[in-house]
Every structure is written in C-alpha cells, then in structure tokens.
Nucleic acid binder design. Structure first.
Lengths: 341, 341
DNA sequence: AACCTTTATGTAATCGATTGCAGTGCAGCA
DNA sequence: TGCTGCACTGCAATCGATTACATAAAGGTT
C-alpha cells in the first residue's frame, strides 16, 4: 500500500547478491562478473531503484553540487554564463546551486553558509565584489572548497579566474571610434569599485593616449551597467557645452539607455553621436540602430569556469592559481559612423 | 596539521554534553535548558562547527533542495522568475537547483533523474512542454515529490500551476489596437503546441470576434518567441498584398525582431504599422520606439510558485491541484498609434 | 600435488546527525 | 515521607550507500 522507495538492500535481495555487489555493479561495472552485473541491473530496473544521494554523499564525503554566486539573477547578462556552466555540469552529474548575492551583501553570514564544504564541493563566483570577510574565509585553509571567479575577479588576485580581455575590449572600442575620425570621445563607466570598470577604462585611456588623445573628466559618465545609468549619462551629455561626438559605453544595457534617452530628446545615433557598447547581448543586433559593440564570449566564460573548477575539485592537492583570459572582438553595426565635422 | 571539519561529537565533547543535546540545542533551542544551550552554542562557535547537510538530510529523509526546470537558462525572460523563486527560497534554507531542459528533450532519462525524490523535495517547472513520459512519472504516486508549473502549464491540468492571465493579455492587446482604429490586425504567435500560444491567441481572437472583426489566416505568423522569429514574420508581412496595419506579437523579443527587420526595410513603427508585445521585459521601455506591451508579473510568478510549492512540501497529505492566475496589464508606449487611413 | 595469483563476492564498519525511549533529579503535593 | 509529574539529558538505533578487508573459488606454475 505504501510504495516506499526501494533501497539497495531490496535490489540485493531480488538479485540474490550482497549490497556491496549491487553498489559495485552500478558504479564500477567492470569490477563485477558480467552475468552478475546483468542480474543486478535487471533487478535494479525491476524495482525502479535510484540511489539515495544523501547517503552516497555522506559516505563519499562530498555534496555533488557546486554553488554559483550571482550578483543578480534577474540580470540577463548572467544568464548566458549560467547556460555555459550548466552545459558542463550536466555532463558531470554535479548539480548547480544558484544563489543571489544581492541580499547577501547585507548579510554576509548567509553567504558564508554557502561557502562551506558541507554545502558545495566548489564555488563559481560571478560577483567580484564579495565582502572581504567572506573572501577571507573562502581562501582560508585546506578545508575550504575551491573557488573560481568567472567574468569578474578580485583585485588581489588570490583566486583563480576566467575572464574576458576587458582592457583589450576598451582598446578596440576606442580604436574603432578614433579610426572613424572622432577626436572627442566620452565614456560611460561601470561602478567605481568594479574591476571590469577599471580594466575597460584602462584599455580605453591607453588607446587614446597612444593616439595622442585624452579624455576630459567631464566626458566620463559614472554608471553602473544598468539601463537607467545610460539614461542618466544621456542627461549629462545633453548639458555639456562641448559634447563628445562618440561615446564608449561599458555595457550594452547602458548604451541602450543612453541612445533611447537621446532619441527622446531628438538626438540621433549615429548621426549626432556614435556609440559603442560592451557585451554583445542578444538584443544588440535588433536594437535600432543595431549596436556596435565588444563581444564577450559569455557562454565560453561559463564553460571554461566550470571545467577549471571541476578539475580543481578532482585535484588532491591545493591547485595553483590559474587565470584564463578569453578574447573579445569588435562587432561593427550601425550605431557608429564617421565623424561628420 | 590536518584541519578536519569539526563534527557534532567535537562540539559535544567540548561542551561536556551528549551529541543529542548539541543537536537539540541547535535545531530546537527551546527544548534545552538555557545554561546548557549557552554552553553548547559557545562550543559550536569555538569549534566553527557546521552541520553536515548530507547526514542531516539522510536522517531526515529529505534533500533540502528543489529543482527548477528551465527550458533555456540563456533566455532573459526566465531570469526574473528565477529571481522571484530565489527570494522565497533564501528565507527557507532550501536550495535552488537549476536545470536546463533543452538537451533534456533529447534525453528524457536525464530529466527523469531530477524528478526523483532522492534529488529534490519538490519541482518547479517553467517548461510546459515536457515529454509525456516524464510527466507520467512525475504524477505517479505517493513517492513522487510535488511539482508545480510556473508561467507555462500542461494542457491536461493534472498539476498545480501559477500563471498570468494570458487570454486576458491577448484581449487587452487587441482592444487597444482596435480602439486606435485598426481593423486589419495580424499576430505573431509562439510555438504551435504551446499553451501560452493558445491562450494568447484565444484571447485575441475572442476580442476581435466581439468587435465583429476577424483575423485572416495569412495574417497569423507562426513564431517561437525568439528574436529571429520576429524578423521572419517581418519578411512575411512585407510580402503580403494586404498588410495588417497593426500586429500583436506574443512576445517582446519577437516584437523587437519584427520592428528591427522592418526598420531595415524602411518601414516605420508606429507610422506604417503598430506593434504590441507581450511580457514587458526590461528593455521594452528603452527600445526605439518604446514598446507598447502586456506586462506579466514575472517576479511575482516566481514568488508565488515557490510559496505554493513550499506549502505543498510541508503538507503531509497529497495537496489538491491549485491554479493561481495573476493579472496582466497593458503598458502603453510609443510603438502603437492611431490608424492613419 | 602443493602453492601462488587472480578474480569475484560477501561481511561489516563507517560517514554524521537525528530522535524515540529511558533515566535522572527536583519540585509539588498529600 | 513517599509519590507523581515535569523538565532535561543521555543512550543507542537509524537513515542508505560505500568500501577496506576477508574469504572463496578458479586457474597457473613447478
């Protein structure tokens, strides 16, 4: 009447062998005689047996899961990275435990829970700005599960990371605009304390310097990667006496907000101002005008991070810190045009 | 030398009590004398003890996780729903295990793994088109964990679900367009076998009928909710002799693809054709033109689904099938205008 | 034939926390 | 004083699978 979940002893009884043999037949098939194996598999099939993961994990001293720390799950930018991670994990029978760190910045205790080995065998952090207290614990000692940063990273460089060549992206953006004849170029940045902001800004400034150009402080609009920040930058741009004829936006979202707000005020892109984005999210090619942008290999970021982490988990000793940098590329579309005097 | 993770016996020894008392002090504090409790908590703090979840789950016969079946993690539409789910779960110390079902449609076996009670205490499916074989198992019997559909649902109605009032959304879209004077109205649909497609189409057709209008078969463009599908619909629209002066796109993404492709061909929105979308994703208000659309409460969908599921998990008996329908609303922006003759 | 390998399987300890049951001590009450 | 009841706490079984070690059988060697 009560259809309880069959356990390994049920299979063993039906197959007429010991539980040890059943366990082996299922996880190390080659260590068991073929005839026995067939009997066991048939019995397992017949009973509908599934291994109890809590029991297995307890015995094996692992959790079978890795946690992904995402700054904001609602942000579509991260979803493609998650997809990449998932692709790799689904082949390794490791589960993906997604945690949003937004409220966590309020409550470091809560995130700390997730960093302990009892929760996960490893961690992928998409959030470079985790509180120091958390990082200290994460990096402390042998018991802690391996952690790897994807996309963002920590300034100190104490952790392995997989990231895009952000500085080069900044260079490409500027080189493109300068190549079109623009001399006064503005920039919409990410948050002040963000490593991506720094890297992209540095690349941009370096490229300008190399061409003998500079960027006036009032042409740098402080943003935070969001649509709103782009719209705010547009307001600032409108109020300038000397307006840049081109703007490098450090995220596509901000570029959309920027262009959209300008359009509302009758300013056209690329007619009145050229705009380069960063990320190449899906909608970029359907925006009007289609957005010229720096493509980040987001899926590959996820794939690579997951692969590296799995390797680290497998390694017996403390693996070395490993930094992987992926190439970016400029995708030229319709939001940039030649400087028109 | 080897800093092994402290276990409950370590805490017990340090506090001078039994493991039973430690366990109780931590999980049912009121069942233990105050002085003892303090001693135990101090000892736990001192050793840095964290409960081993595999052991607890094994003993308690649960997994502490629920799985979310997402058709495509990379699709930003789902991310807000995930955010809603996460918000609720983070308060319940239940983990969120995200699984992409794309490759799963190839391999039902793989998804089946996740539906078993050994993996999760419950399931939220954002994918209404799971293979029947899977659903059969999921609904079969007492051992199976509760499952609830969010956003999409199954035609048979054998499962609880939380969804938006899609039919009403279709009605609102058509009413809006008809109110602007449009008489020949087209529609870009989702996949043929999708419940959302059916509901939205039905609402649209009903609203037309009520106004004495009809929709010609050649004005129905078969899509799949993607950007590309919208672009394809634009091609079809261009080839028509009699072109609809307004189009209801069953997703914002398709609306973007549609408008973008039309723009490329010199057709303007809303000048030459009005467009209403569905979803109100973030970018809709920044698109040019800003998109008139039907807003779905995506975050609330996630919140509600998670709450209902948690309730079901808590319930001892088989809970009744429960359908929650959330309101949608029309957000009027710039992609629709009065019929101009 | 005696002995050593190799292969296949079983026995039983183990992972770490939870919890039913039993015991202890103390207060209240007749 | 003796008894009952209550509040705490401890003992030990238990969750289900894995695996080190022991055992047994079969094959090979001299």
């Amino acid at each position: 009447m009560e259809p309880k979940a069959p356990k390994i002893t049920d299979v063993a009884r039906l197959a007429g062998v010991s539980t040890a043999t059943v366990s082996r037949a299922l996880s190390k098939p080659e260590s068991v005689a073929e005839s026995t194996r067939n009997t066991v598999l048939a019995a397992a099939e017949k009973t509908g047996y599934r291994v109890n993961l809590s029991a297995r994990n307890l015995r094996r001293q692992r959790t079978g899961a890795i946690v992904i720390l995402v700054p904001n799950i609602g942000n579509p930018f991260f979803s493609e990275i998650l997809a990449g991670i998932e692709t790799v994990l689904s082949e390794s029978d490791i589960n993906m435990l997604v945690v949003d760190t937004r409220q966590a910045h309020m409550k470091p205790q809560l995130v700390l829970e997730y960093l302990h080995a009892t929760r996960a065998d490893g961690i992928i952090a998409l959030d470079g700005s985790l509180p120091d207290a958390i990082l200290a614990v994460a990096s402390s000692g042998i018991g802690a599960p391996p952690i790897i940063f994807a996309c963002e990273w920590t300034p100190g460089g104490e952790f392995s990371s997989v990231r895009a060549n952000n500085a080069h992206g900044g260079e490409l953006a500027i080189a493109h605009l300068a190549g079109l004849g623009h001399r006064i170029i503005g920039m919409i940045t990410g948050p002040d304390d963000n490593v991506l902001t720094h890297a992209r800004s540095k690349g941009a400034i370096d490229a300008l310097t190399e061409k003998g150009l500079a960027m006036a402080p009032e042409h740098v609009f402080a943003g935070d990667f969001s649509l709103d920040a782009g719209a705010r930058a547009a307001q600032s741009w409108l109020e300038l006496d000397q307006r840049p004829s081109a703007v490098f936006s450090q995220s596509d979202q901000m570029a959309f907000g920027f262009i959209s707000e300008l359009a509302r005020q009758g300013i056209s892109v690329p007619g009145d101002v050229s705009v380069v984005g960063f990320d190449d999210i899906a909608i970029a090619q359907c925006f009007i005008p289609a957005l010229t942008t720096i493509r980040q290999p987001r899926k590959k970021l996820g794939l690579t991070a997951a692969r590296v982490l799995i390797e680290h988990i497998g390694a017996s000793s403390n693996p070395p810190i490993e930094t992987t940098i992926l190439d970016v590329e400029l995708i030229e579309r319709d939001s940039t045009g030649a400087f028109a005097g």
